[in-house]
Every structure is written in C-alpha cells, then in structure tokens.
Computed example of a mutant assay.
Amino acid sequence: MHRKICHIIFIVIMLSVFQSCKEETKYRIGVSQCSNDDWRTKMNEEIQREIMFHPEATVEIRSADDSNEKQIADIRYFADNGFDIIIAAPNEADAITPVIKEVYDAGIPVIVFDRNINGDSYTAYQGVDNVGIGKSAADYARHLLPDGGNVIEIHGLAGSTPAVGRHEGFAKEAELKGMNIIASAYGNWNYEDAAIKVDSLLNIYEDVDLI
C-alpha cells in the first residue's frame, strides 16, 4: 500500500510542477475519501507521511463517510477554495461522476484512485484489476470446493466499481468452474451489514457450501 500511496503523491507533485513553473509556489492537494475505516485510515497516514517530504505542497483530507452528498460537497469545497489538484476515491460511480467531470472540465487536475467513475473525465487513474480479483476469488473457491457447490456471494457497496468488477469476475469464473451462486447481497464493505445479510440468507438457503 505504501508504494501505491507514494506513486499517487509522485503523480500529484509531477502534475503540479508541469502545470506551473513559478518558484516558491505552495501547491494545495485535496483528498476526498469515500469512507472512513482502518484501511483508509492507514492510507491517510501514509499520505500525510509522504507529504512531509514535499515542502512545496500541503494536503487536506476529507472523508465522505459513505455519503454521496457529503463527497460531492467535499469535492466542490476543494474546487471552490483554490486547491490545485483533487484526488478522489468515488463512493458510487453514478453519483460522483458528474461532480468530478464538472471540476475536471473546469481545468482542475483530478486523480481518481481505488474506485473509478463512469467515463474518462479525469487526469489519471490509480487502481487495480477488480475483474481479475473476482476471478482469483473464484479460483480459490474452487480450491475449497473441488467438486463444485452452492455459494452465497456478498458484494461490497452497490454502485461502487470495485464491487461491480469483482462480482463480474467472480460470477463468470465460478460458473466455468462448476459452482452455483444461489444468492447474493450487498455487505457495503461493512462487517456488521454483511453478517446480518448472511444470517438472513442462511435462514432461507439450507444447502450452502461456501460464503
């Protein structure tokens, strides 16, 4: 993760340098996180640590706490207050795409990371192959169920591109490997939500080999 964050900060600094050659300019970087959990807390710590090596820039991090409305407001805050670059992990693609396109079209560099938007209205994207991750999960599931079986799939957040991509990769590969997805539900990237959904589904489906 550290190398990923360093890579993002490097892109940000390079974009800033290329944008203007003025001496002693203090670049302001706005980071819009879609949520606040242990993984993103660690990421934020690494961003803050990395920015210490770049006295020519400052960073402000805001968390949307899984709210599309708050993230839209956060992104507009960065745009309206003169931030030079905005880095965003979109909560849900459909909801966040318009505001990212709006600030990008206004000439503000935008780096989208982790979760994607619809279209290509951004300066750069830093992410992973979520379809490939889904396929890898199906490969591992087949290792646990060499003869196939019934599977319950718990997604992430509805409308988030990692959840969509991982489901597509998992469902396609699971079918090829003889597994049957008998039910699915959104866990919202949250253990408590996922546990409730699983309990409900297990009350409906008795013949389950893997979750």
Rank of each mutant, 00 (worst) to 15 (best):
S16F: 11
H2A: 12
H167C: 02
D139S: 08
W39H: 06
L144T: 08
P109C: 07
A106F: 07
A95P: 05
I72C: 06
M43R: 04
H167W: 10
I29A: 02
S184N: 14
I154T: 01
G132T: 04
S200G: 13
I196T: 02
S35K: 14
S121I: 01
M14E: 14
D114C: 14
C6R: 09
G82M: 06
Q19D: 11
E69A: 13
H155M: 13
D66F: 05
Y122F: 14
V151Y: 09
D74I: 15
Y186R: 03
T41L: 09
Q71H: 15
S20C: 13
K135T: 11
R62F: 10
K197F: 01
Y77V: 00
Q48L: 06
K22T: 08
G165I: 11
G134V: 10
K42S: 10
V198H: 00
F53S: 08
G119I: 11
I152S: 02
K101F: 10
D199L: 13
S136G: 08
C6T: 10
D84N: 14
D114R: 11
D38G: 04
D84P: 05
K101C: 09
I182F: 05
V59D: 04
G149E: 04
G30S: 01
N188T: 02
I51V: 05
V99S: 07
D38M: 07
N190S: 13
L157R: 08
I13G: 00
I181M: 15
P146S: 08
H7K: 08
I9A: 06
K70I: 15
M52N: 03
M1E: 07
E50S: 09
L145V: 06
P98M: 05
Y104Q: 11
A174H: 03
H155F: 11
I51S: 06
A89I: 12
V17A: 12
R166Q: 11
L202R: 13
D129R: 14
P162F: 02
V131M: 15
H143M: 12
N150S: 15
L176D: 13
I11A: 10
E192P: 00
N180W: 07
I13M: 06
P98H: 05
D65G: 01
Y186C: 01
G149Y: 09
I13D: 04
Y140D: 08
F170T: 02
P109M: 11
V128A: 09
E69I: 03
D74N: 15
I152R: 02
V198L: 08
R115W: 02
Y191M: 00
R3Y: 05
D74R: 14
V131F: 12
G178K: 04
I111E: 03
